[in-house]
Design a binder for these strands. Structure first.
Lengths: 227, 227
DNA sequence: CGTAGTCTTGAGTATCCTCAACGAGGGTGG
DNA sequence: CCACCCTCGTTGAGGATACTCAAGACTACG
């Protein structure tokens, strides 16, 4: 059984810390406020009005949809550096929850950024670029979840995480989410995910350094489905 | 076996036709050129530099990725009104091919739109909104392809197409793509797609008016997976 | 009217899900 | 400090689902 800690009221602070930031955002840094979230805490909820854009600074989060029958479905994992919360219409379809305790997220008021972008072409371009990146990422994800066999799904998931969440010091891929989350994301059962991982381990394609740290040994074995 | 007609050189014409157009694009209408594509013809290819933005005016197209092992994977279907080709980096990951003979696509030079957007805030906002719509659409798609059973996948695919490709006159959903394309898109085999459709038909949830026209009778039966 | 591609249906098999149980780790309270 | 609980992760056995292979019916188009 999964537990959802959905307490609100994050520890919000007006940020003046010199976070390494992309240039175009410097001009609107005074609009930013950062907040820290506990494990399982909601960053924004489905049905909220889309008044803010978000920038995940540290930790990790999951973007979920609630299906009509009550089941949950993870649509995306958000990692440090990711922007999210872009929304055309005024209401949100998804909820975002922190996975890691102490996940830090920066918040920008949408309308005020839009206004600023009207007079600052560089900012406007930057928002567009960021949105385009988000599109590319989203479509790349379809290539992972759309794979046929479980081994293919898990394998390409590991490769994707290897690109997005790599610890250079320990030379390992960090999987901050639980096996349940991975299973939900890939449309598999937990057991199948676990079995696929042990399968890769036994074949020497990966090596575990704790359940949430993996070293990718044979990347080709992860991408090709050689049963 | 599928056939791919990949001939290039579409029938390109500088457009002055009074197509119904969204306001913000009026200012850059002179930059537009339209082209007609044959069935299977490539609108743009993987590896091309992303110099244009596209607007599908009539017909239908599929966005595909070529996997390392040579297999193809359909990532998206493009229907009248859809914008595509947004890309952050300079090279494209996907190829787009026409599905319907005589598919008409409008093309806008990316850089010149960007320049125009620098001085026209409404245009800049419109591009952002369009990109955000594309993100929402892409994530909604994950909810379809990420469903567990084949019936769920095919059912929610029909519902989505019911929203996107509805013929008001005949009161039918138009499925311009082949069963093979649907199967590829949903990550199923052709046979399974066919069987799921027959299943829905026999249960009275849908009614066929030719293989590419469906009337949705019981929408709830398509969304709920009641085996 | 013929051909090629598309769509449907059938039978057998492999894969993945469900149910069940057990081990490991982290946090809390005695 | 240890025991306990809760969640997470892994492994096993059995059964349902979807894939593969195969063949026939239908459509579109020249």
């Amino acid at each position: 059984m999964l537990s959802y800690v959905n307490g609100r009221a994050p520890t919000r602070t007006t940020s003046t810390a010199p976070v390494t930031q992309i240039d175009p955002l410097q001009g609107v840094a005074h609009l930013r406020s950062t907040a820290s979230y506990r494990r399982g805490q909601e960053i924004y909820g489905a049905g909220e009005s889309a008044e803010f854009w978000y920038h995940l600074l540290s930790g990790a989060a999951r973007k979920c949809a609630l299906l009509a029958d009550g089941r949950r479905r993870i649509v995306d994992f958000l990692l440090p550096g990711d922007f999210f919360g872009f929304r055309a219409r005024h209401q949100r379809n998804f909820a975002v929850e922190a996975i890691i305790p102490g996940t830090i997220v920066a918040t920008y008021p949408r309308r005020r950024i839009e206004v600023a972008a009207d007079t600052d072409p560089a900012l406007g371009r930057w928002v567009r670029e960021t949105a385009f990146e988000s599109i590319s990422r989203s479509q790349g994800r379809v290539l992972i979840t759309g794979r046929v066999t479980a081994l293919e799904k898990v394998g390409s998931f590991l490769v994707e995480m290897g690109c997005r969440s790599f610890d250079r010091i320990e030379q390992t891929v960090v999987l901050p989410m639980s096996r349940y989350d991975i299973a939900d994301y890939l449309g598999l059962s937990v057991e199948t995910v676990s079995r696929a991982l042990t399968g890769f381990k036994q074949r020497g394609a990966i090596r575990f350094v704790g359940p949430h740290r993996v070293r990718l040994i044979d990347r080709r074995a992860l991408e090709n489905d050689q049963h």
